[in-house]
C-alpha cells in the first residue's frame, strides 16, 4: 500500500484549470520531487493535499485512508504536515514556541491546568521543551531558541518551518521550495538535513523545488507538472533527459 495515493486530482479557479487529472503514488519512506515551470500548479497541489482547497475531482488517500475533502486541521491529524512557499511562521513568537505549536497535538494538558499551573502543566511543558530542543538541534537552531521567529535570517526561517512541521509527527511531509533564497552552501546543508530527517523521523517526503541540483541530488522519483497536468513521472535520470521536459523548461 502506498503512503500517498492521488487519483485524477483536479481543481479550477474560474476558467483556469489549475490542476487537471493528476495521479501520483508515493511509497512509504520515499523522497519524491514535484517540479514544473512557474504557475504549473505545484503549490495548488499542496493546497489540495492539505485541504486548503477542496478538489473538484479526484481522490486522495493517505496510508490507505480516504482524506478527500477533510479540513486542514483533520488532515494534519491524519499525518500530513507542510511548509509554505511564502514563509508562514508565527512571527511574534519565539523559535522554541513555534516548534511547540507544532507539538500541540502530541503533548496535551487542559487549559485550566495551564492557568492554575497544576503539576501536569510542568510535567508536559518539560517534555515539550525537551522534544522541541531535540528537533531544533537537527536544524542547528537550538542556540536561537529564544529569538523571535521574525528576527531569524531568511534561510533559518525556512529551516524553522520544517522543524515546526516535524513537530506534528507527520507520516508525509510536504516541502514547498525549501531551498528558495538560500545560497549554494546552505542548499547543500539543507540536502543533507532533508535526507537525515527522512531517516531519523521515519517520514515520507514530497518536495517542490526549482533547484535542479537539489532535486536530482536527493529525490528518488520525480513528477513533472506543466499547465496543471502530468508531463513526466519517474526516476530523475530518465525524467530530466525527457525531451518534453527539457522543452517545457527551456521554452521552444
Amino acid at each position: 500500500m502506498s503512503m500517498l495515493s492521488v487519483k485524477n486530482l483536479g481543481i479550477s479557479f474560474g476558467g483556469l484549470r489549475a490542476v487537471d487529472s493528476v495521479s501520483i503514488n508515493i511509497e512509504k519512506g520515499e523522497l519524491y520531487g514535484l517540479i514544473g515551470p512557474n504557475g504549473a500548479g505545484k503549490t495548488t497541489i499542496f493546497n489540495l493535499l492539505t485541504g486548503v482547497y477542496k478538489p473538484d475531482t479526484g481522490i486522495i488517500e493517505l496510508d490507505g485512508k480516504n482524506i478527500t475533502g477533510k479540513s486542514t486541521m483533520d488532515i494534519n491529524n491524519e499525518g500530513i504536515a507542510r511548509t509554505f512557499q511564502n514563509i508562514r511562521l508565527f512571527k511574534n513568537m519565539s523559535v522554541l514556541d513555534n516548534v511547540k505549536v507544532g507539538l500541540h497535538n502530541q503533548y496535551k494538558y487542559p487549559t485550566f491546568a495551564g492557568i492554575l499551573r497544576l503539576p501536569s502543566y510542568f510535567k508536559t511543558e518539560k517534555a515539550m521543551n525537551e522534544k522541541a530542543i531535540e528537533i531544533l538541534k537537527v536544524f542547528d537552531l537550538d542556540e536561537e531558541k529564544d529569538i523571535m521567529a521574525a528576527n531569524l535570517p531568511y534561510g533559518k526561517q525556512r529551516k524553522l518551518e520544517i522543524a515546526r512541521a516535524l513537530g506534528t509527527n507527520p507520516k508525509l511531509l510536504l516541502l514547498d521550495e525549501p531551498a528558495a533564497g538560500m545560497n549554494p552552501k546552505e542548499t547543500d546543508e539543507l540536502m543533507d538535513t532533508i535526507r537525515l530527517i527522512r531517516n531519523k523521523f521515519n517520514v515520507t517526503i514530497l518536495l517542490i523545488e526549482h533547484d535542479m541540483k537539489l532535486v536530482s541530488g536527493i529525490c528518488e522519483k520525480i513528477f513533472v507538472l506543466n499547465f496543471g497536468t502530468k508531463l513526466a513521472n519517474g526516476e530523475p535520470k530518465e525524467v530530466l533527459n525527457n525531451p518534453e521536459v527539457i522543452k517545457a523548461y527551456l521554452g521552444e
Binding site: 486548503v52 494534519n76 509554505f84 511562521l89 508565527f90 505549536v101 500541540h104 512541521a165 506534528t168
Partner: peptide, 10 residues
C-alpha cells in the same frame, strides 16, 4: 500570527 499555518499544525 498566521491562521493558515496554525490550521496546518492541527
Amino acid at each position: 500570527d498566521n491562521r493558515i499555518a496554525a490550521e496546518t499544525m492541527g
